[in-house]
């Protein structure tokens, strides 16, 4: 997509609060937007390095909990007479902490779990998320366990006399949109850099990448850190929007939602998670609007997923791109260049 088109699209999206009077749709857009940021971060791992992380919700949840705890303040006993605590801090600072903590966790997990690949990596990532969930559930002194951290403050920016509150939906929507654009730019820069090419190289053929001197684990860890930090930021946004966080934030279904967004949209493409996210963020609302039983809504959702994979196995964005280039009757070579390489077996 050309830069102009992107700018127009962003401007169009930014104008939404001006003409969309029904705040419920704005709510749907906000939640969808937050999950798109999370899906974009997952795409960095899944799409660009080829590692299927099914524990991504852990980073999202760690971000949410960190931000909630820093903004609320906490105190825990590490040893019987050693307490660690923190007074409540401003929300913007809490969100930065969330990003940092999630990124650090990403570093540790990357170092640890990239000792294995493929199917093993899949389960290790699931295990990691499950352990984090159970810690959040059982470390009641810190997280309040299932009683949830509530009354989490909303984001306000500014100083005495001039405060910008993000409690209202239009302001929060614009904040999410800004984050989305920032993350998009970061990912675009990263994948087009030397590090990004190294990642794609190892996705395509790891042993070949290794043999030409690419430090595979290092680039995987870099990707995980950036990806985890972004997911943590998305989690922080989410927690200050919903304003409650409990261990259910680590539910597997949220990871599934992110994977659906990435794979149906087109993994390894910049626009993929956005397109997939918009569609699978809106579909449940369309289904909710129809007067059918909730089970049937779920069934329709599942069938739609399967159909998208069948008819557009590489995702929607690559399919549109190759359709467009075939319409332009470009020489064959160029059409192949636009579409990502066929997945290896």
């Amino acid at each position: 997509m050309s830069r102009l088109l992107v700018s127009i699209l962003v401007a169009l999206l930014a104008s939404v609060p001006l003409w969309l009077t029904d705040f419920y749709y704005l709510h749907v857009l906000i939640v969808t937007g937050i999950f798109i940021v999370a899906a974009m971060s997952l795409n960095l791992l899944l799409g660009y390095t080829g590692q299927l992380s099914l524990g991504h919700v852990a980073f999202f949840g760690i971000g949410a909990y960190t931000s909630a705890l820093v903004s609320l303040g906490f105190e825990v006993h590490i040893l019987p007479d050693v307490t660690v605590g923190m007074a409540p801090k401003p929300v913007w600072f809490a969100m930065l902490c969330a990003t940092a903590v999630a990124g650090l966790t990403g570093y540790a997990i990357g170092k640890l779990s990239f000792r294995v690949r493929g199917a093993y990596f899949v389960i290790v990532s699931i295990s990691f998320a499950e352990v984090v969930r159970l810690v959040a559930l059982n470390w009641v002194e810190l997280t309040q366990g299932p009683m949830a951290l509530n009354n989490i403050p909303a984001l306000t920016l500014g100083f005495d006399g001039f405060e910008l509150s993000f409690l209202r939906k239009p302001a929060f929507y614009l904040l999410v949109l800004t984050m989305l654009v920032v993350c998009y730019v970061i990912i675009a820069r990263l994948v087009n850099s030397r590090a990004g090419r190294a990642m794609i190289a190892l996705r395509e053929n790891e042993s070949l990448a290794m043999s030409v001197g690419i430090d595979v684990t290092r680039y995987l860890v870099v990707a995980t850190v950036v990806s985890a930090a972004m997911a943590g930021m998305a989690g922080a946004l989410y927690t200050h929007y919903i304003r409650i966080v409990d261990p259910d934030i680590f539910l597997f279904i949220y990871t599934v939602t992110m994977v659906i967004m990435v794979v149906t949209g087109g993994k390894g493409t910049l626009a993929g998670p956005i397109v997939g996210g918009v569609i699978f963020g809106i579909v449940p609302e369309v289904l909710r609007g129809m007067e059918i039983r909730p089970e049937v809504q779920w069934i329709a959702y599942g069938v739609l997923m399967v159909l998208v994979v069948y008819f557009l196995p590489r995702g929607i964005v690559p399919a549109i791109e190759s359709y467009m280039s075939s319409r332009r009757r470009a020489p064959k070579g160029e059409a192949v260049a636009v579409a990502p390489e066929a997945p290896q077996q």
Binding site: D22, F23, Y24, H27, V28, V31, P146, M147, A148, N150, N151, I242, R243, I244, D246, D248, R288
Partner: peptide, 29 residues
């Protein structure tokens, strides 16, 4: 999300819900 929808779209003046304590706590803000 359901509470957002019921209030913002259906404009209900009163609600009933949400069964479990976790679900109720989530919608309270």
């Amino acid at each position: 999300s359901t509470v957002e929808k019921l209030i913002e779209k259906d404009k209900v003046p009163v609600l009933m819900g949400a069964w479990s304590s976790t679900l109720t706590l989530a919608v309270m803000p």
